[in-house]
Write a protein that binds this DNA or RNA. Structure first.
Lengths: 157, 157
DNA sequence: TATTGTTATACTCTATAACTATA
DNA sequence: TATAGTTATAGAGTATAACAATA
């Protein structure tokens, strides 16, 4: 029985989900799990969650954006952004600046400290992607991104 | 002001996350969100969640597998499988069969009804992937799967 | 002692409704 | 009336510890 059990494990364990690997969605889910796990560890060194880094990136690249535009950009619910922005604002990484002539929305602006932290985190994320995708050639990485963006563009609302 | 607001939206709204789209992880997350949303709707017609379909697939392809092996295969925690299998068993789509000489694990076996439901759901999932990836050529789909599996294989534990 | 299945629990992510203050 | 931000809440998905039965 020990022999049976061992040979079963050794011979077929690696392909028990063979049928599912024919689905791109399943493969993406499995790979994204690996990527997000490593990325979360990398960003934890900066006290950032993955979503916080995304928010910081968009605000640095689009200073003055408001929360509704930010939510649309990252495809998040406005309500789920509140705590994330609260945290970043409390840490003085960005500010909610009043807009002249409009008192119901704020312009999100990165602080100097926010820009500096973002630059360090951004470099770390580039390092993370280099490591996690190190088995792909430059051409393969470019092809992967091109294919993913082609799918997203087709279904862009 | 209406003009300013409109031109801002029209000119820069589409590329506010341009910097993030350089990251494969971000692009995968965005695309997987679209794919999983559509897939969930497709599987809801069979009263299946995405995870239930994965479980059913692995059990159909590997009759006799136990819960620990199933959890390893799908990279889930054993504890999180309990309710899913409970549901599938209560609906008589699969059974927990006792194993001769081993009373602490069960052999998961698909029922005839389970195989039939799986065949219908499987066909629907293939249809879903065909629709959601319809902008890609056969070669592109194959390339995408190959790249994803190459990443996964490299980091397989 | 180690393994299998299970329970309980907690934390993250996501989705929705309703509120406030503004416009 | 509609919009921006907010609050509360609920549902998935995921992770961990501890337990009973069994090996």
């Amino acid at each position: 029985m020990a022999h049976t059990s061992h040979s079963f494990g050794a011979e077929t364990e690696a392909c028990r989900d063979a049928d599912l690997t024919r689905f791109t969605g399943y493969n993406m889910k499995r790979v994204l799990g690996l990527v997000q796990g490593d990325l979360a560890q990398v960003l934890a060194e900066f006290d950032l969650r993955v979503i916080s880094f995304s928010v910081l990136t968009v605000v640095v690249q689009n200073p003055g954006i408001n929360q509704t535009q930010l939510a649309e950009t990252l495809k998040l619910e406005r309500s789920n952004l509140v705590q994330i922005i609260d945290d970043l604002a409390k840490r003085a990484l960005m500010s909610r600046s009043p807009i002249a002539g409009n008192r119901r929305s704020y312009a999100l602006m990165p602080s100097g400290e926010g820009r500096l932290l973002w630059q360090r985190a951004h470099a770390a994320v580039i390092g993370h992607e280099g490591r996690i995708l190190s088995m792909l050639s430059a051409q393969e990485k470019e092809a992967l991104n091109r294919l993913l963006l082609k799918i997203r563009d087709e279904w862009a609302s």
